[in-house]
């Protein structure tokens, strides 16, 4: 063990720092969870505003929602607007959301972010009116709905997120 002091004395800095495998090109789409959350909220707000516009028009020109959703979710959205149009009503007022939290953010692959949110969708200030302007809002409509929203990167711009799913969370109601 006499060797130790000599070694310690000479060992100024051998400097072989642990080498990491991650390459610099694999930078995540969002630098932080906060950034991912902000982008997801922005995308959800845009989707909500456009959906409100379409239902205010009685469900007409529903393809306006297409730029805000993934190709896989679009058919479901269009079917939703179609069902809305068949009821012959239109919406008045704005949908809202609150109690947003990030479930997870990860990059599925380089430049392809996946973000999941919990939020409370609130449609209490949205009224449904028929062609005569009579309020036809269902009295038993659930107005505050706990949702899990999944979003993924747009192929054009990874930091722009598209709505990929909206699942009603039927577990413990956090709204």
């Amino acid at each position: 063990m006499l060797v130790m002091p000599a070694l310690a004395a000479c060992a100024t800095a051998p400097a072989p720092a642990p080498s990491h495998t991650a390459a610099g090109t694999d930078a995540p789409v969002f630098a932080s969870d906060e950034e991912a959350l902000a982008a997801a909220e922005k995308a959800y707000a845009a989707y909500q505003a456009m959906s409100d516009l379409i239902t205010a028009d009685g469900g007409a020109e529903s393809s306006r929602i297409a730029p805000l959703a993934t190709r896989s979710y679009l058919p479901e959205l269009l079917a939703g607007f179609e069902a809305f149009a068949q009821d012959g009503r239109s919406s008045r007022g704005e949908s809202m959301y609150d109690t947003v939290s990030l479930v997870r953010y990860g990059d599925e692959s380089t430049g392809k972010a996946e973000v999941a949110l919990y939020l409370c969708s609130d449609v209490s200030s949205v009224r449904l009116v028929d062609r005569n302007g009579t309020d036809r809002t269902p009295t038993d409509r659930p107005n505050r709905i706990p949702l899990q929203v999944s979003l993924v990167s747009s192929s054009r711009d990874p930091s722009t997120l598209l709505i990929d799913r909206e699942d009603v969370w039927s577990g413990e109601n956090f709204c």
Partner: peptide
Amino acid sequence: AFACTLAQRVG
């Protein structure tokens, strides 16, 4: 969990 769009929730 089940899917439901905003238009479906509104309606």
